[in-house]
Design a binder for these strands. Structure first.
Length: 312
DNA sequence: AAGAACATCAACCGCTCCAAA
DNA sequence: CTTTGGAGCGGTTGATGTTCT
Protein backbone atom coordinates (compact mmCIF):
# COMPACT_ATOMS: atom_id res chain seq x y z
CA UNK A 1 0.00 0.00 0.00
CA UNK A 2 1.48 3.31 -1.02
CA UNK A 3 1.40 6.66 0.64
CA UNK A 4 -1.96 8.23 1.04
CA UNK A 5 -2.80 11.25 -1.10
CA UNK A 6 -3.00 13.36 2.05
CA UNK A 7 0.53 12.46 2.99
CA UNK A 8 1.83 13.26 -0.49
CA UNK A 9 0.32 16.71 -0.36
CA UNK A 10 1.63 17.39 3.13
CA UNK A 11 -1.85 17.66 4.52
CA UNK A 12 -2.56 17.14 8.17
CA UNK A 13 -4.04 13.90 9.48
CA UNK A 14 -5.24 12.65 12.82
CA UNK A 15 -7.44 14.24 15.45
CA UNK A 16 -8.93 17.62 14.77
CA UNK A 17 -8.02 20.57 16.95
CA UNK A 18 -10.55 23.03 18.34
CA UNK A 19 -9.15 25.69 16.04
CA UNK A 20 -9.63 23.50 12.97
CA UNK A 21 -13.18 22.75 14.07
CA UNK A 22 -13.87 26.43 14.49
CA UNK A 23 -12.55 27.24 11.02
CA UNK A 24 -14.57 24.48 9.41
CA UNK A 25 -17.80 25.38 11.16
CA UNK A 26 -17.35 29.08 10.49
CA UNK A 27 -16.75 28.48 6.81
CA UNK A 28 -19.67 26.11 6.30
CA UNK A 29 -22.06 28.28 8.27
CA UNK A 30 -21.18 31.23 6.06
CA UNK A 31 -20.76 29.60 2.65
CA UNK A 32 -22.10 26.08 2.89
CA UNK A 33 -19.71 23.26 2.14
CA UNK A 34 -19.97 23.43 -1.66
CA UNK A 35 -17.25 21.32 -3.18
CA UNK A 36 -15.56 19.42 -0.42
CA UNK A 37 -12.37 19.21 -2.39
CA UNK A 38 -12.16 22.97 -2.71
CA UNK A 39 -13.29 23.68 0.83
CA UNK A 40 -10.02 23.20 2.79
CA UNK A 41 -8.14 25.89 0.89
CA UNK A 42 -11.02 28.34 1.10
CA UNK A 43 -11.46 27.63 4.81
CA UNK A 44 -7.73 27.86 5.53
CA UNK A 45 -7.38 24.23 6.57
CA UNK A 46 -4.46 21.93 5.94
CA UNK A 47 -6.78 18.97 5.47
CA UNK A 48 -8.08 17.04 2.51
CA UNK A 49 -11.69 17.61 1.52
CA UNK A 50 -12.57 14.11 2.50
CA UNK A 51 -11.35 14.64 6.04
CA UNK A 52 -13.36 17.87 6.26
CA UNK A 53 -16.51 16.19 5.02
CA UNK A 54 -16.12 13.39 7.53
CA UNK A 55 -15.47 15.76 10.41
CA UNK A 56 -18.52 17.81 9.50
CA UNK A 57 -20.94 14.98 8.84
CA UNK A 58 -19.91 12.83 11.78
CA UNK A 59 -19.14 15.38 14.45
CA UNK A 60 -19.64 19.08 13.79
CA UNK A 61 -22.99 19.12 12.02
CA UNK A 62 -25.49 20.92 14.26
CA UNK A 63 -28.28 18.39 13.78
CA UNK A 64 -26.40 15.52 15.36
CA UNK A 65 -27.57 13.84 18.51
CA UNK A 66 -24.70 12.54 20.60
CA UNK A 67 -24.54 10.45 23.71
CA UNK A 68 -25.93 7.12 24.73
CA UNK A 69 -28.39 5.36 22.47
CA UNK A 70 -31.91 4.95 23.78
CA UNK A 71 -33.57 1.58 24.06
CA UNK A 72 -35.83 2.48 21.19
CA UNK A 73 -32.81 3.32 19.08
CA UNK A 74 -31.15 0.05 20.01
CA UNK A 75 -34.27 -1.84 19.05
CA UNK A 76 -34.43 -0.06 15.73
CA UNK A 77 -30.79 -0.75 14.97
CA UNK A 78 -31.17 -4.45 15.71
CA UNK A 79 -34.26 -4.76 13.59
CA UNK A 80 -32.81 -2.81 10.72
CA UNK A 81 -29.54 -4.71 10.88
CA UNK A 82 -31.47 -7.95 10.63
CA UNK A 83 -33.06 -6.64 7.48
CA UNK A 84 -30.26 -4.65 5.91
CA UNK A 85 -27.03 -6.10 7.24
CA UNK A 86 -24.08 -3.73 7.46
CA UNK A 87 -25.68 -1.05 5.33
CA UNK A 88 -25.04 1.61 7.92
CA UNK A 89 -26.03 4.58 5.86
CA UNK A 90 -29.39 2.99 5.10
CA UNK A 91 -29.86 2.22 8.77
CA UNK A 92 -28.89 5.77 9.69
CA UNK A 93 -31.66 7.21 7.53
CA UNK A 94 -34.15 5.60 9.92
CA UNK A 95 -32.44 6.98 13.02
CA UNK A 96 -32.79 10.75 12.98
CA UNK A 97 -29.73 12.69 14.12
CA UNK A 98 -27.49 9.64 14.30
CA UNK A 99 -24.65 9.17 11.85
CA UNK A 100 -23.81 5.97 10.05
CA UNK A 101 -20.37 6.01 11.65
CA UNK A 102 -21.83 6.31 15.13
CA UNK A 103 -24.31 3.53 14.51
CA UNK A 104 -21.60 1.32 13.08
CA UNK A 105 -19.37 1.92 16.09
CA UNK A 106 -22.21 1.31 18.49
CA UNK A 107 -23.11 -1.92 16.76
CA UNK A 108 -19.53 -3.16 16.79
CA UNK A 109 -18.79 -2.21 20.38
CA UNK A 110 -22.12 -2.83 22.12
CA UNK A 111 -24.93 -4.51 20.26
CA UNK A 112 -22.88 -7.18 18.52
CA UNK A 113 -21.46 -8.32 21.82
CA UNK A 114 -24.84 -8.35 23.52
CA UNK A 115 -26.39 -10.45 20.79
CA UNK A 116 -23.44 -12.83 20.98
CA UNK A 117 -23.91 -13.14 24.72
CA UNK A 118 -27.56 -13.91 24.12
CA UNK A 119 -26.52 -16.75 21.85
CA UNK A 120 -27.60 -14.95 18.72
CA UNK A 121 -25.30 -14.72 15.76
CA UNK A 122 -24.94 -10.97 15.10
CA UNK A 123 -24.43 -11.56 11.41
CA UNK A 124 -27.33 -13.86 10.65
CA UNK A 125 -29.45 -12.90 13.68
CA UNK A 126 -30.08 -16.57 14.20
CA UNK A 127 -29.70 -18.47 17.40
CA UNK A 128 -26.30 -20.13 17.77
CA UNK A 129 -27.81 -22.88 19.87
CA UNK A 130 -30.33 -23.89 17.28
CA UNK A 131 -29.50 -27.17 15.62
CA UNK A 132 -31.18 -28.64 12.56
CA UNK A 133 -34.73 -29.62 13.39
CA UNK A 134 -34.49 -28.29 16.90
CA UNK A 135 -34.29 -24.64 15.90
CA UNK A 136 -35.21 -22.15 18.53
CA UNK A 137 -38.53 -20.51 18.03
CA UNK A 138 -36.97 -17.13 17.63
CA UNK A 139 -34.93 -18.57 14.81
CA UNK A 140 -37.97 -20.02 13.16
CA UNK A 141 -39.62 -16.66 13.23
CA UNK A 142 -36.50 -14.91 12.09
CA UNK A 143 -36.12 -17.33 9.21
CA UNK A 144 -39.71 -16.84 8.20
CA UNK A 145 -39.28 -13.11 8.29
CA UNK A 146 -36.05 -13.15 6.32
CA UNK A 147 -37.56 -15.43 3.72
CA UNK A 148 -40.51 -13.11 3.41
CA UNK A 149 -38.11 -10.21 3.07
CA UNK A 150 -36.25 -12.04 0.35
CA UNK A 151 -39.45 -12.68 -1.50
CA UNK A 152 -40.33 -9.03 -1.34
CA UNK A 153 -36.90 -7.86 -2.39
CA UNK A 154 -37.01 -10.20 -5.35
CA UNK A 155 -39.72 -7.89 -6.50
CA UNK A 156 -43.21 -9.23 -6.80
CA UNK A 157 -45.04 -6.62 -8.77
CA UNK A 158 -47.70 -6.04 -6.24
CA UNK A 159 -45.20 -5.44 -3.47
CA UNK A 160 -43.13 -3.10 -5.59
CA UNK A 161 -46.15 -1.06 -6.50
CA UNK A 162 -47.26 -0.92 -2.94
CA UNK A 163 -43.86 0.14 -1.73
CA UNK A 164 -43.35 2.73 -4.39
CA UNK A 165 -46.67 4.35 -3.70
CA UNK A 166 -46.22 4.22 0.03
CA UNK A 167 -42.73 5.59 0.02
CA UNK A 168 -42.65 7.94 -2.93
CA UNK A 169 -46.25 8.68 -3.71
CA UNK A 170 -46.72 8.63 -7.43
CA UNK A 171 -43.12 9.51 -8.22
CA UNK A 172 -40.81 6.88 -9.60
CA UNK A 173 -38.33 5.07 -7.44
CA UNK A 174 -35.23 7.19 -7.78
CA UNK A 175 -32.64 5.16 -5.95
CA UNK A 176 -31.06 2.82 -8.40
CA UNK A 177 -27.87 2.05 -6.59
CA UNK A 178 -27.13 -1.45 -5.52
CA UNK A 179 -25.29 -0.12 -2.48
CA UNK A 180 -28.33 1.40 -0.83
CA UNK A 181 -31.41 -0.32 -2.07
CA UNK A 182 -34.42 0.95 -0.20
CA UNK A 183 -35.64 -1.93 1.90
CA UNK A 184 -39.13 -2.84 1.05
CA UNK A 185 -40.43 -3.72 4.45
CA UNK A 186 -39.04 -0.79 6.40
CA UNK A 187 -42.01 1.40 5.81
CA UNK A 188 -44.21 -1.45 6.82
CA UNK A 189 -42.07 -1.67 9.89
CA UNK A 190 -42.74 1.97 10.55
CA UNK A 191 -46.44 1.37 10.19
CA UNK A 192 -46.23 -1.56 12.53
CA UNK A 193 -44.21 0.36 15.05
CA UNK A 194 -46.84 3.03 15.01
CA UNK A 195 -49.24 0.42 16.23
CA UNK A 196 -47.19 -1.90 18.34
CA UNK A 197 -45.29 0.76 20.23
CA UNK A 198 -48.56 1.82 21.74
CA UNK A 199 -48.48 -1.68 23.23
CA UNK A 200 -51.09 -2.95 20.85
CA UNK A 201 -53.90 -1.53 22.89
CA UNK A 202 -55.04 1.45 20.87
CA UNK A 203 -57.67 -0.10 18.70
CA UNK A 204 -58.70 3.12 17.08
CA UNK A 205 -55.26 3.46 15.61
CA UNK A 206 -55.38 -0.08 14.40
CA UNK A 207 -58.70 0.54 12.77
CA UNK A 208 -57.25 3.59 11.13
CA UNK A 209 -54.50 1.38 9.87
CA UNK A 210 -57.06 -1.04 8.61
CA UNK A 211 -58.88 1.79 6.87
CA UNK A 212 -55.81 2.77 4.89
CA UNK A 213 -55.03 6.05 6.59
CA UNK A 214 -51.41 4.99 6.48
CA UNK A 215 -51.60 4.99 2.71
CA UNK A 216 -51.40 1.25 2.80
CA UNK A 217 -53.98 -0.97 1.31
CA UNK A 218 -54.12 -3.96 3.62
CA UNK A 219 -55.54 -6.06 0.85
CA UNK A 220 -52.28 -5.51 -0.99
CA UNK A 221 -50.10 -5.82 2.06
CA UNK A 222 -51.36 -9.21 2.97
CA UNK A 223 -51.38 -10.86 -0.38
CA UNK A 224 -48.50 -13.14 -1.04
CA UNK A 225 -47.33 -14.83 -4.17
CA UNK A 226 -47.48 -18.12 -2.42
CA UNK A 227 -50.53 -18.58 -0.23
CA UNK A 228 -48.91 -21.50 1.53
CA UNK A 229 -46.61 -19.04 3.26
CA UNK A 230 -49.46 -17.24 4.89
CA UNK A 231 -49.99 -17.35 8.59
CA UNK A 232 -53.27 -16.82 10.29
CA UNK A 233 -52.83 -14.54 13.24
CA UNK A 234 -55.92 -15.88 14.96
CA UNK A 235 -54.05 -19.08 15.74
CA UNK A 236 -51.66 -17.34 18.09
CA UNK A 237 -52.31 -17.83 21.77
CA UNK A 238 -50.75 -16.50 24.97
CA UNK A 239 -48.59 -17.67 27.78
CA UNK A 240 -49.65 -16.36 31.15
CA UNK A 241 -46.13 -16.59 32.51
CA UNK A 242 -44.89 -13.96 30.15
CA UNK A 243 -47.55 -11.32 29.94
CA UNK A 244 -49.70 -9.36 32.30
CA UNK A 245 -53.45 -9.86 31.90
CA UNK A 246 -53.72 -6.29 30.75
CA UNK A 247 -51.30 -6.87 27.94
CA UNK A 248 -52.98 -10.09 26.98
CA UNK A 249 -56.19 -8.21 26.67
CA UNK A 250 -54.61 -5.56 24.53
CA UNK A 251 -52.93 -7.99 22.24
CA UNK A 252 -55.95 -10.21 22.00
CA UNK A 253 -58.17 -7.25 21.18
CA UNK A 254 -55.74 -6.29 18.51
CA UNK A 255 -55.69 -9.78 17.15
CA UNK A 256 -59.44 -9.80 17.18
CA UNK A 257 -59.55 -6.75 14.97
CA UNK A 258 -57.07 -8.37 12.68
CA UNK A 259 -58.85 -11.65 12.75
CA UNK A 260 -60.28 -11.35 9.32
CA UNK A 261 -56.97 -10.44 7.83
CA UNK A 262 -54.38 -12.96 6.89
CA UNK A 263 -50.96 -11.42 7.23
CA UNK A 264 -47.83 -12.25 5.40
CA UNK A 265 -45.43 -13.81 7.85
CA UNK A 266 -42.95 -10.97 7.86
CA UNK A 267 -45.50 -8.47 9.02
CA UNK A 268 -46.49 -10.78 11.80
CA UNK A 269 -42.85 -11.24 12.60
CA UNK A 270 -42.36 -7.52 12.92
CA UNK A 271 -45.27 -7.33 15.29
CA UNK A 272 -43.76 -10.09 17.31
CA UNK A 273 -40.36 -8.46 17.34
CA UNK A 274 -41.74 -5.14 18.42
CA UNK A 275 -43.87 -6.75 21.05
CA UNK A 276 -40.93 -8.64 22.43
CA UNK A 277 -38.24 -6.02 22.26
CA UNK A 278 -40.19 -2.91 23.08
CA UNK A 279 -41.48 -4.34 26.31
CA UNK A 280 -40.31 -1.84 28.92
CA UNK A 281 -42.68 -2.54 31.77
CA UNK A 282 -39.81 -3.57 34.00
CA UNK A 283 -37.89 -0.37 33.52
CA UNK A 284 -37.60 1.36 36.81
CA UNK A 285 -34.79 3.21 38.50
CA UNK A 286 -31.88 4.62 36.59
CA UNK A 287 -30.98 3.98 33.02
CA UNK A 288 -28.41 1.31 33.73
CA UNK A 289 -30.98 -0.75 35.59
CA UNK A 290 -33.39 -0.32 32.74
CA UNK A 291 -30.75 -1.40 30.30
CA UNK A 292 -29.96 -4.53 32.24
CA UNK A 293 -33.62 -5.33 32.69
CA UNK A 294 -34.18 -4.83 29.02
CA UNK A 295 -31.74 -7.51 27.98
CA UNK A 296 -32.40 -9.92 30.79
CA UNK A 297 -36.07 -9.65 29.98
CA UNK A 298 -35.42 -10.70 26.42
CA UNK A 299 -33.18 -13.53 27.58
CA UNK A 300 -35.86 -14.69 29.97
CA UNK A 301 -38.43 -14.74 27.26
CA UNK A 302 -36.19 -16.57 24.85
CA UNK A 303 -35.21 -19.05 27.51
CA UNK A 304 -38.73 -19.65 28.74
CA UNK A 305 -40.31 -20.10 25.37
CA UNK A 306 -41.46 -23.63 24.95
CA UNK A 307 -43.46 -23.16 21.81
CA UNK A 308 -44.12 -20.55 19.21
CA UNK A 309 -47.36 -19.50 20.74
CA UNK A 310 -45.83 -19.30 24.19
CA UNK A 311 -43.78 -16.31 23.15
CA UNK A 312 -46.99 -14.39 22.79
C1' DA B 1 0.65 1.61 42.35
C1' DA B 2 1.75 -0.01 37.90
C1' DG B 3 1.49 -2.48 33.90
C1' DA B 4 -1.51 -5.29 30.90
C1' DA B 5 -5.61 -6.05 28.72
C1' DC B 6 -9.69 -4.49 27.01
C1' DA B 7 -13.16 -1.01 25.27
C1' DT B 8 -14.39 2.93 22.77
C1' DC B 9 -14.84 5.85 18.89
C1' DA B 10 -12.87 9.45 15.81
C1' DA B 11 -10.65 9.25 11.74
C1' DC B 12 -8.58 7.13 7.79
C1' DC B 13 -8.33 4.21 3.55
C1' DG B 14 -9.78 1.96 -0.49
C1' DC B 15 -13.45 1.09 -3.08
C1' DT B 16 -17.80 1.92 -5.75
C1' DC B 17 -21.21 4.73 -7.76
C1' DC B 18 -22.80 8.39 -10.51
C1' DA B 19 -23.14 12.63 -13.00
C1' DA B 20 -20.92 15.59 -16.09
C1' DA B 21 -17.85 16.36 -19.83
C1' DC C 1 -20.10 5.27 -25.27
C1' DT C 2 -16.05 6.34 -22.49
C1' DT C 3 -13.53 8.87 -19.21
C1' DT C 4 -12.99 11.42 -15.09
C1' DG C 5 -13.60 13.59 -10.69
C1' DG C 6 -16.45 14.18 -6.63
C1' DA C 7 -19.06 12.15 -3.11
C1' DG C 8 -20.31 8.60 -0.16
C1' DC C 9 -19.95 3.95 1.86
C1' DG C 10 -18.16 0.17 4.78
C1' DG C 11 -14.14 -1.86 6.88
C1' DT C 12 -10.36 -0.99 9.62
C1' DT C 13 -6.94 1.39 12.46
C1' DG C 14 -4.94 3.56 16.27
C1' DA C 15 -5.03 6.93 20.06
C1' DT C 16 -7.06 7.39 24.31
C1' DG C 17 -9.61 6.03 28.30
C1' DT C 18 -11.07 2.44 31.53
C1' DT C 19 -10.89 -1.81 33.96
C1' DC C 20 -8.50 -5.71 35.56
C1' DT C 21 -4.71 -8.27 37.75
Amino acid sequence: MGRSPSFEKGLKKGPWTAEEDRKLVAYIEEHGHGSWRALPVKAGLQRCGKSCRLRWTNYLRPDIKRGKFSLQEEQTIIQLHALLGNRWSAIATHLPKRTDNEIKNYWNTHLKKRLTKMGIDPITHKSRTAVNTNLSHMTQWENARLEAEARLVRGPKIASNFYQRFHYGSSPVVNKTSRSPQPLCLDVLKAWQGITLSKLTDLSRLESFNNQTLAVEPSEMIKTENPTNELNISNVSFNNDLESPKDHEGVQNTLGVMNDMTYQDDYLMEAFTNHLVSDDRSFEGDFEDADNNYWSNILDKLGNSSSLSSIF
